[in-house]
Design a protein around this nucleic acid. Structure first.
Lengths: 139, 139
DNA sequence: CCCTCAGTTTAGAATAATTCTATTATAATA
DNA sequence: TATTATAATAGAATTATTCTAAACTGAGGG
């Protein structure tokens, strides 16, 4: 896994530091939609001196390269999704758990004439709301 | 307009103060999706001593009554929409202008089996991204 | 293999949005 | 009009995120 990550970033204008490698390892295949704090807490286990700024710098750099999506479904804070292919999300209104939805609904999302007159659409993202199984069985 | 607002809130467990009335007047029919700061700046014109907390308290109270939607399409800050009927939004990626989209796409938004297994969906909101006419002619 | 330096890390301060606290004020009911 | 529950206020506190300036280091070139 580490090799794959190194191959992906080596010589691509993205300096691979131990901290960045740890962040990339944590994110690789991660579908938990961690927040910056989640990442920070995890990386601190191996790199106790890591600073929050490093986490923010790194996720910004990854987002700018298109390798990481900022997920804004939770009004409280940003979450990050290492799967850069466009997809949608569902959040549990009770516990905040976020799930991925890999369906492209674009064909059905035709915009009304008045919107087309005012905007040229370039993309879309759907926030589904719901209750997760854990929360609905719990109560 | 003021009469309509008074009728709507009088005796409904929502104390109508001058500050609240000013906020309600500003929001009535407003399709600009103002932020808390936009509201604060506007209300200060007539009520120079108003505090930010009053604006936040009031929009929270209105949101809790279902009279105001929090719009989270802009990752920078929350916007408010006095139209409580479910609808979607489009944001200009250049200037941040937000437009309303009154189409119910729900019938087309069927969720995959694996999502249904994990979540009971209760609603959805679509963030469309695009470029508004002003910004596309400007450049 | 090591030099160099642009890019990165760090601690801590700064910023910005929002919430909280304690006190004072007031709308709405009786 | 008196009472009281609720709201308004100033300012501090909180939380998420960004900035700053100095020290550090990965990686290409010699």
């Amino acid at each position: 896994m580490v090799r794959k990550i190194i191959d992906r970033y080596k010589g691509k204008g993205f300096k691979l530091t131990p901290q960045r490698l740890a962040i990339l390892k944590f994110l690789e295949g991660n579908t938990d939609h961690p927040t910056a704090e989640d990442i920070f807490i995890e990386i601190k286990k191996k790199h106790p001196t890591v600073s929050f700024a490093t986490v923010y710098n790194t996720v910004q750099a990854l987002r700018d390269r298109g390798d990481l999506l900022e997920v804004t479904i939770d009004p409280e804070r940003k979450h990050f999704d290492p799967n850069p292919s466009p997809h949608h999300h569902i959040i549990c209104t009770a516990c905040g758990k976020i799930g991925d939805i890999f369906v492209d609904y674009s064909a059905a999302l035709t915009l009304p004439e008045e919107t087309i007159k005012e905007f040229t659409p370039t993309g879309n993202h759907i926030d589904f709301h719901g209750v997760c199984r854990d929360c609905s069985t719990k109560q």
